[in-house]
Design a protein around this nucleic acid. Structure first.
Lengths: 199, 199
DNA sequence: CGCTGTCTTGAAGCGTTTCAACACAAGTGG
DNA sequence: CCACTTGTGTTGAAACGCTTCAAGACAGCG
């Protein structure tokens, strides 16, 4: 590990700053230390589709390292963000030297595929009510009933494949049904998690 | 490689035979040699969602090897199918012994993530016309204008997150617009690929 | 305090699904 | 080889869910 540390650099990004764009030459892995990063793609017809939000500890940029040479997605800081970076060459070196890192990476990739497919299945088979309800339930910390949405409605709408308007309306419905209570714009209390699950 | 070969076994599956189910203990990697395998998930509400069709050369079962211990998906032979299988332990051994296999796997995983995210973006942002058109275009062999759909309309509908009825109707529209010509139930000729792309 | 972007609410419109009925093809057994 | 069955594909009409557009409310921030 002593060999790795000196090769790691720091990078800071301001709110709304683009970390990398689709088409950029891919040669860096970013590990989020502080802040939050939004990952999104553009569809063939140019619409933005949010894929994920990265919190501290999560990383991005790894995909393109093993395939072509360019990023396929966009990464954007949604607030003041600090990342550790490591170059493609250094990473490759470490992977050969410490094969267990590769196994860890394989595990992480497996989780990503699982997440992506789950999301894919959700878009395809569940209606908007269900997608929103599931998102809220998954955002619940253990032993808590409060959810803090860490993004704008617009980004959330993109992530859930719907529109901000629809999210507004559905949250209204949930509240009228006594399933949730809205404390502020982005703060939601879950009153009846069981019922919410079976929406 | 001489060490690997003897650890590889063969498995045959009849049409509609389940290769593995979600929840099964995961301990085997399957490489398709002949036939075709349908991979699908069940959504939280029990609906079937086709994730992929595997052709000879492609493999499955690898995901769960690196994470929990159970499959999350279903694999089903859609015709007489032969697979090579390799056990979890053997694979792990090889990965440590031949680190380049891990790199290959990482590359393959990267491609899967890319595919899944692309599909995810498509469900989320494109309408049915576009999804069907794109599927047809991607099914085209190089330098050919004929597409042979290797699955039932029901499975295709599930893969494209729509219904068989809608696919029927849309293909009618495409045909009336002179973009395609239907030769038989599953055989489609693309007459105007450019126009089809901009549906 | 006023500006800008985000969020909400309402009404209209559209695309897709759903349901039901029918056509068709493939496979089975007499 | 034909009748029967079963699964798959098509067509039509009705219903529904969501998006879209437009306008107004609200909040954050200089």
């Amino acid at each position: 590990m002593e060999k790795i540390m000196p090769r790691i650099k720091e990078a800071k990004f301001k709110k709304n700053e683009i970390i990398y764009s689709a088409g950029d030459k891919s040669d860096t892995l970013y590990v989020v230390r502080r802040g939050r990063v939004k990952i999104y793609r553009l569809s063939a017809t140019g619409k933005e589709q949010v894929i994920a939000f990265l919190n501290p500890g999560e990383f991005t940029g790894e995909l393109a390292l093993f395939r072509g040479g360019t990023y396929e997605r966009f990464a954007e800081a949604t607030m003041e963000t600090e990342c550790c970076t490591i170059s493609r060459e250094d990473l490759q070196e470490f992977l050969v030297e410490y094969p267990t890192i590769a196994l860890k990476l394989l595990e992480e990739f497996s989780n990503r595929i699982e997440t992506s497919e789950k999301q894919q299945t959700r878009y395809a088979t569940e209606k908007v009510d269900t997608r929103i309800a599931m998102f809220i339930l998954e955002s619940l910390e253990t032993d808590s009933t409060m959810v803090e949405l860490p993004m704008t409605k617009k980004d959330l709408a993109s992530y859930l494949a719907t529109t901000p308007e629809t999210i507004s309306r559905k949250l209204n419905e949930f509240e009228e049904a006594g399933l949730i209570k809205r404390h502020s714009n982005k703060k939601i209390e879950v009153l009846d998690a069981d019922e919410l699950f079976f929406i």
